[in-house]
Deep mutational scan, measured.
Amino acid sequence: HAATELTPEQAAALKPYDRIVITGRFNAIGDAVSAVSRRADEEGAASFYVVDTSEFGNSGNWRVVADVYKA
C-alpha cells in the first residue's frame, strides 16, 4: 500500500519520525508527490507531508522535502 499524503492540519497533529529529500525532474507537482509517496513507502512510512518544493536553477530539476510519519 502506498503512503498517503496528509493535509496541513493532519501533519500538524502528528510528529514526523524522519524527513526525506528527493531531487529529480518532475513535469508537475503531482509527479513529485508520487515520487515522495514511493520513497516514503519504501521507508515503511504510513503517510507523508510535503514541507517544501524548490526548483534548482532553470534546469527543470526539483528538490522536494517531506516529513514522513509511521501511523
Rank of each mutant, 00 (worst) to 15 (best):
G30N: 10
A2R: 14
D52S: 15
D31C: 07
A66I: 13
D41F: 15
V68Y: 07
A46G: 11
E9I: 08
A40T: 04
A46C: 13
Y17H: 04
A3D: 02
V33W: 09
N27V: 10
F26W: 10
I22V: 12
I29M: 12
A45V: 03
G24Y: 03
G44F: 04
S47A: 14
A28V: 09
S47M: 13
A35C: 09
G24M: 05
A32P: 02
P8A: 15
L6T: 01
S47N: 07
N58D: 14
V51I: 12
K15Q: 12
R19E: 00
V21F: 07
A28E: 10
D18I: 12
G44I: 04
S34M: 14
T4I: 14
K15D: 07
I22W: 00
V21M: 07
A45C: 11
G44R: 04
D41K: 15
Q10R: 07
F26T: 00
D52Q: 13
A40L: 05
R39T: 05
T53Q: 08
E5F: 06
T53G: 06
T23P: 00
E9V: 08
A12T: 08
I22P: 00
E5P: 08
N61W: 15
V65K: 02
W62P: 00
A45H: 06
L14G: 06
A12S: 11
D18T: 12
N61S: 10
I20A: 00
R39C: 10
Y69I: 02
A35N: 03
G60T: 05
E43M: 15
A46R: 08
A40N: 03
N27K: 12
Y69L: 01
V33I: 15
A66F: 15
F48M: 02
N58P: 12
V51K: 02
V51C: 05
E55D: 08
R39M: 10
A71C: 12
R39Q: 07
S34T: 11
F48S: 01
V33N: 04
V51F: 04
A11N: 02
A2T: 13
G44M: 05
N58G: 13
D67R: 03
I22D: 00
V33Q: 05
N27A: 13
N58H: 12
R25E: 08
R63D: 02
F48D: 00
P16I: 03
G30C: 12
V50Y: 01
T4C: 14
N61E: 15
P16W: 05
R38L: 10
A40Y: 03
A12I: 09
A71T: 12
E42I: 10
A35L: 06
A46I: 11
I29K: 11
T23W: 11
A12R: 12
D31M: 07
K15A: 08
G24E: 02
R25S: 10
